[in-house]
Every structure is written in structure tokens, then in C-alpha cells.
Simulated assay, not measured.
Amino acid sequence: MFVEGLSKENSNLEGIIDSYKRYKGREFENSRLISISCLANPNKDMNILDVGCGRGELSYTLSKSGAHVTGIDDSSSAIKTAKAKYLANSSMKNLEFIQDNFLNHKFNKKI
């Protein structure tokens, strides 16, 4: 997780977009996303559901802990972007993205 350089400016939408572009969606520097990741306190024995995962930045970061993470979003374009960014050419077996109603699944934590 990228923490250096956090600033007040990173808390706005423009900062999130800049961070996404700068790190090509693979890391984030937005303090809100970092806080959520810390609160989830993921570990390899967890199944985590990221509701409204969007392009998958948080799901990807949580999965780096070894937890099985499922990112769910209603937007087919967001899921397509997340799959292309994090699953294409990847051997990650603990990360998946689906377009579905989150109420159809059971997880340890819902973020």
C-alpha cells in the first residue's frame, strides 16, 4: 500500500483519479481507501466481500494479504475494467470480480 506523500488534497475525487492513473490502479494513496483497508485488517483465513468495488483498487489491495476477496459491482464496465487490470495475465487465485447482487453471498466482512 502506498502511504508516502499523503496529503489533504488526496481526499478529493481528483486526487483519487490522479492516484489511479499514476499507479495504473495497482496501488492507492487516498487516505479513505487506506483507512478502509486498515479497518478490514485482512488475513489469509478470511473471505471478504467488497460491495460496490468499482474498478477494484481496494479489492486488489485487500487480496495482497492472502484473504480471498470478491469484488461485486452492478456496473458491467467497472467489473470489466477490474478484471482487465487485476486478473489478466495474473496468477492471483484469491481475487475475483463478479457482477451480482451481494446478498447472494456469505463473507466474514462486508466493506
Results as ranks from 00 to 15, higher is better:
L87M: 13
G25E: 04
E27R: 15
N10M: 15
H105C: 02
S11A: 12
I98S: 00
D73Y: 03
N30R: 13
M46K: 06
N43L: 11
K24V: 14
Y20A: 12
D18Y: 03
A84R: 14
N89I: 13
S37L: 15
H105G: 08
G66F: 05
F97D: 00
I72C: 11
A67T: 10
D18H: 07
N89Y: 07
N12T: 12
V51K: 03
S59C: 04
L58M: 04
K64A: 05
D50G: 00
T81D: 07
G52Q: 05
S75R: 14
E57V: 15
N101S: 02
G15W: 11
I34K: 10
D74I: 13
K24P: 05
C38F: 04
N43K: 12
G15H: 11
I34W: 10
S91E: 07
E9T: 10
Y60L: 09
G56F: 03
E9G: 04
I34V: 14
K24L: 11
S75E: 05
K106E: 06
A40R: 05
F2V: 08
F2Q: 12
S91M: 12
N47P: 01
V3D: 03
N108P: 01
I36G: 02
E4M: 13
R22P: 01
T61K: 10
L6N: 12
L58F: 03
S7K: 14
N104W: 06
C38M: 11
V51R: 02
Y20T: 09
D18T: 09
N41P: 08
S65L: 13
I79K: 00
S11D: 11
S65V: 03
K109G: 01
S35C: 11
R26K: 15
P42M: 07
I16A: 10
H68G: 04
C53G: 03
L58V: 13
S19N: 09
